[in-house]
Design a protein around this nucleic acid. Structure first.
Lengths: 163, 163
DNA sequence: CCATAGTATTTCGGTACCGAACTATTCGGC
DNA sequence: GCCGAATAGTTCGGTACCGAAATACTATGG
């Protein structure tokens, strides 16, 4: 079987740390590599659409809530600080992708709305998303892919339970 | 089968984007969640040892090279900018964890050396690493774990080939 | 050997982020 | 109804990062 970068990584580290479990380490490190790979490809794609990753992520979260949300909701969805969200919305408002209005019902709150131009920008970048995911996971058969998804669910449930 | 956070995520997004492949999306999103989960647990652990994540990562890279390396090597290993590495080494030198000396052979170069105190700090934090990885992957049998590692290798090889 | 090109590292200017302090508004108990 | 506690959002001070310019040195071609 051909070696990947993680096999090399493991060989190197086993010399320094003989005690680590090679299979556990291999699984964790491969997931880290795959996630980073997809993130990089995504960032390159977004750059073509003149998007910073955080700008796209914010529009994506807003679109996921139907184009209307409060800063708090977006802050929670993206797990960033409230201060960071203020900065992101300032920039997106500047570019005309979102609109902020004080809520009439509760004047502490702000309603963030995706503009037409914001939605158009999001969709155009979205349409090329997922291509790389399909490409790399396409090496697996449909059955293998489903098995993989189910195996990862079992692991994630343990992770979530330990929070 | 019990639902995890990703099942909920998928249900929510399929309403907005009917075209996405649920199995591909499930695998990718679960890997992202697992990697983030492990990163968070690790950061919490490191905080107990008064380590910022980037400080530990730098010592770890240095230890992985036997305790001696140049800033360029560490920069490449961690894929950060050279400027960032200068800042990290400044901080680590301040805390007495590394020592910088001008290389005698090539005076442009700097030799970074892990001090005794630096190695001790690294080892103490290292000893509790991997516990969470073992815990969540412990739900799989040894055979399932090996299968998972091999499946991910196949996927990662495709990712690496596409660079 | 000298000029030029190349390399290793640091410095500089600017950005996104976080936690904490602050402002404006609403809620809850008396 | 009023006052203190709670909540939504923004502002502020500080940090780690990046890309580019600067610095210091080494290699190379004539």
């Amino acid at each position: 079987m051909t070696q990947d970068a993680v096999d090399a990584h493991l060989t190197r580290w086993r010399a320094v740390l003989p005690d680590l479990d090679p299979d556990v380490e291999a699984v964790v490190t491969r997931m880290e590599h795959l996630v980073r790979h997809l993130r990089r490809v995504k960032e390159r794609t977004l750059a073509e659409y003149r998007f910073a990753p955080y700008e796209y992520a914010t529009l994506h979260a807003l679109a996921g809530r139907g184009g209307n949300a409060t800063p708090s909701e977006l802050t929670a969805d993206l797990t960033i600080s409230a201060a960071a969200m203020t900065g992101r919305l300032d920039a997106l408002e500047q570019r005309g992708y979102v609109r902020r209005t004080h809520s009439a019902a509760d004047r502490r709150r702000v309603d963030v709305e995706l503009t037409e131009s914001g939605r158009a920008a999001w969709v155009s970048a979205l349409n090329v998303q997922g291509v790389e995911e399909q490409r790399i996971l396409g090496v697996l058969s449909e059955g293998e892919l489903v098995d993989l998804a189910n195996t990862l669910r079992r692991v994630l449930l343990v992770a979530e339970a330990g929070e």
